[in-house]
Design a protein around this nucleic acid. Structure first.
Lengths: 341, 341
DNA sequence: AAAGCTTATGATAGCGGTAACATTTTGTCA
DNA sequence: TGACAAAATGTTACCGCTATCATAAGCTTT
C-alpha cells in the first residue's frame, strides 16, 4: 500500500506534536501525564485538550526504556487448559489493571525448560515483576531472576525459602488435613489419586501429605490404593475404575487433583455406585460443580482468588518501592464437608 | 539498598558489553540475534559465547522502539471468570509463543468503556496485533484501532463487516440450528434461556437465532418461554425453576449460555425431574462435564480451540507481511445429540 | 521593591537497541 | 592476478520518551 520508508512512515502522533499544539515543551507534556501536580492547572488543561484533539497515545515502550520502569507483569502457569487458573488470573488481572499494569501471560506446559525460555522472554520484555505458579525451576531460571532483581512471587505452594516471595497455601498440610478428616470420619481404606508427579512439586506434596496423615494416625499405607492420574474428568473416571478393581476395595477416595473427583462421581452414577454408602469421595479443589452435584462433594477450598489478588498486590507494593518485609504469605485452605463423605 | 543514581544503576549487561567481548560492533551482535545468516559462522559463534558468558538478555523494549516492530499481541476478553476462554487462550498462546510472540491479556468485564481503556493501553504498549472477543465497540475504540493500522481479529461472532478481520462461527446460525433440531425432534414448547443481552451481541444473536428458527418453522413465539440469565450454574438452576413455574410448561429448554445447562441438569436431578422424559435439555456450549453427566447433554460444539489457533495464525501472517486476503473466517459449529434430547 | 523561596517550564543528553548507508573483507572469474 | 560483485562488518543517526539540571516565573517577606 504505502512506501515503507523510515521518514515517510506515519508512526502517529508524537508527544512533540502535542507539545507544539499546546505551546509547551515535550517535557511538560510528559509531566502532565505522569506527574500532573507538577504542572499548572492551566497548562494541564491545554495539554489534555491537545491530546484529545490529536488522539495522542503515549508510547510506553519509549517511556519504559527511558525511565527504566515497566508497567507489565508476567505470569507463567503450568497450563492454561484447565480452567483452574482462571480465577487466579482474573483476580491478579483485576488488581493490576486497576493500578495501570498490564498482564503478560504464558504457560510452560509443565516443562522446566519452557519456563526458562518464558522467563527469559519476559525479562527481555523488561517486566516489572513476575508471578510463577510452578515452584520448581531450572538453575538458569533462578539465576536470571535473581540477576534481574525484580519482584517475583511463587504461588503454587507455600515455600519456606522462595526465590523471592511466596503467596500460597500448603499443599502438604491441606492434603494431610483432608486425609485426617476422612480417617476421623471413620473410613478405613482411603484411596489416593495423585496428579502426575513429574515436574510437579504440588502433586508430590499432596501425596506426601496423605502419607504423613496416615503415618501420624498409625495407619499402614497400602500402595495399591495410591495411583496417579492426569487432571481431567476422564482420568478421574478411569482412576475410580482402577481402584474398584483391586482386591480389597477402598471405602473412600481422596482425589488430590483438579476435577478428577467430578469425573469419579460421574462414573459412580454411571455404574450405579452409591456415594457415600458404597464409596466416599473427597476432592482437593473446590470447583463450582462439586457443590452442585448430587450428592455434593466434600472438598478443599483453595484460596484461588486470594492468591491472585495478594500476589499482584505484593508485587505492586515492591515495584512502587514499599518495602514489603513479607516473604511468605500463607493464605490457608478450608475443608467443606458435603454429602459425599 | 543501593543508590538510585542513573549512572550508578547496574542495568545489567548490554549489547555493547557483548560486542566488546566478542570483538565486534554492537550492530553485528544485533544481526547475529535477529538475522543470523547475515553474520559469518565464526563471528556468530564468538558472539553466542559472549552472550552465554555474560548472561546477556536483549532489551526488547529498545529493540521494538528502534525497529518499530513489536512481539506482543493483546487479547481482550469480556471475562476471565468463566473457564470458557481457557481453550481459546491456550490455543492462541501456543501458536504465538511458538513464533516468539508474547500475549498480553485483559478482560473488559463486558464494559465497552473498559474495553476502550484496554485497547488504548495495548496500543500504548505498541502491540503488534489484537484479538478482541467482543464484537461491540465504542466509537473511540474503533477509531483508535483503525488509526493504529495493526491487524485485529474479532472472535466473538462471525462478522460480515469486521473492523479488520473476523474468525468465529455464527451465533445466530448455531442457535437457529439447535432450535430447529429440537423442533424436528418433536418438541413443541421449547424454552429459551439467553445470556444477559446487555452489551453482549452474542447473547442477542443467539436469541434472534432461536426466534428465527421458530418463525421459519411456523411456530408461534411464546414470550413466557424466554428468559435471561447470567452464565453460572446457579443461574441455570434458577432459570429452570422459573420455567417450570409457568402455566404451560416447556417440554424442552435450550440454554444459550455457558454452563447454564449443567446447572439446570443438576436442578432436575435435585427435583427428581427426568431428562429427557419430563423435560429435554440442550446446551449452547459443549463443556466436558456435559458429556459426562448422566444423562449426557445435547450440545453445540463451538470451535474454541480453532478460534484461538486461527486468530493467532492470521495475525502473525499479517504482521509478517503476508497479505491475507481473508477477512472473515467461518469455523462452523456442530450439534452433538446426546441423551438429554 | 529587592531578596529569597517555591513552583513551573525548558534544554540537553541519554535509555538500548536497529535502519540505512558506508566501508572493508572475501570470493570469483576473466 | 587484477577487477569486481557479494558477503561481512562498521558508522552514524535516531526511535519516542524521561532524568537531570538549568532557567524563568510567581509569591512571600520585611
Amino acid at each position: 500500500m504505502k512506501k515503507a520508508s523510515r521518514s515517510g512512515d506515519n508512526r502517529g502522533v508524537l508527544m512533540n506534536d502535542v507539545a507544539r499544539r499546546a505551546n509547551v515543551s515535550p517535557m511538560t507534556v510528559s509531566r502532565a501525564l505522569s506527574n500532573p501536580d507538577m504542572v499548572s492547572e492551566k497548562t494541564r488543561a491545554k495539554i489534555l485538550e491537545a491530546i484529545e484533539q490529536t488522539g495522542y497515545v503515549p508510547n510506553r515502550l519509549a517511556g519504559s526504556l527511558a525511565s527504566n520502569r515497566s508497567n507489565t507483569i508476567g505470569i507463567i502457569l503450568p497450563s492454561l487448559k484447565n480452567s483452574l487458573f482462571a480465577e487466579t488470573i482474573q483476580a491478579a488481572s483485576d488488581v493490576l489493571s486497576k493500578k495501570g499494569y498490564l498482564l503478560l501471560i504464558a504457560d510452560s506446559g509443565h516443562l522446566l525448560e519452557e519456563e526458562e525460555k518464558l522467563v527469559e522472554a519476559f525479562l527481555g520484555q523488561r517486566v516489572g515483576g513476575m508471578i510463577l505458579h510452578n515452584t520448581l525451576h531450572s538453575e538458569r531460571t533462578m539465576a536470571m531472576i535473581s540477576n534481574a532483581g525484580i519482584p517475583v512471587v511463587e504461588t503454587g505452594d507455600l515455600l519456606a525459602e522462595p526465590m523471592d516471595m511466596s503467596v500460597s497455601y500448603s499443599n502438604f498440610e491441606a492434603s494431610k488435613a483432608m486425609t485426617a478428616f476422612l480417617v476421623k470420619k471413620g473410613y478405613k481404606r482411603i484411596g489416593f489419586v495423585a496428579m502426575l508427579t513429574e515436574n510437579n512439586n504440588r502433586a508430590r506434596l499432596r501425596r506426601d501429605g496423605y502419607l504423613a496423615a496416615l503415618d501420624e494416625l498409625g495407619i499402614k499405607v497400602d500402595g495399591s490404593l495410591m495411583i496417579e492420574a492426569s487432571s481431567s474428568l476422564e482420568a478421574g473416571r478411569d482412576a475410580l475404575t482402577r481402584l474398584l478393581q483391586i482386591e480389597t476395595k477402598p471405602d473412600a477416595v481422596f482425589f488430590a487433583g483438579d476435577i478428577m473427583a467430578a469425573g469419579a462421581a460421574f462414573e459412580c452414577k454411571h455404574r450405579n455406585i452409591k456415594i457415600p454408602e458404597d464409596i466416599a469421595i473427597a476432592s482437593f479443589d473446590d470447583l463450582a460443580i462439586l457443590q452442585h452435584m448430587t450428592p455434593s462433594i466434600t472438598s478443599l477450598q483453595i484460596p484461588r482468588v486470594a492468591i491472585g489478588h495478594e500476589a499482584a498486590e505484593i508485587i505492586i507494593s515492591r515495584i512502587e518501592g514499599r518495602e514489603t518485609s513479607v516473604v511468605t504469605k500463607d493464605l490457608g485452605f478450608k475443608i467443606t464437608q458435603r454429602q459425599s463423605t
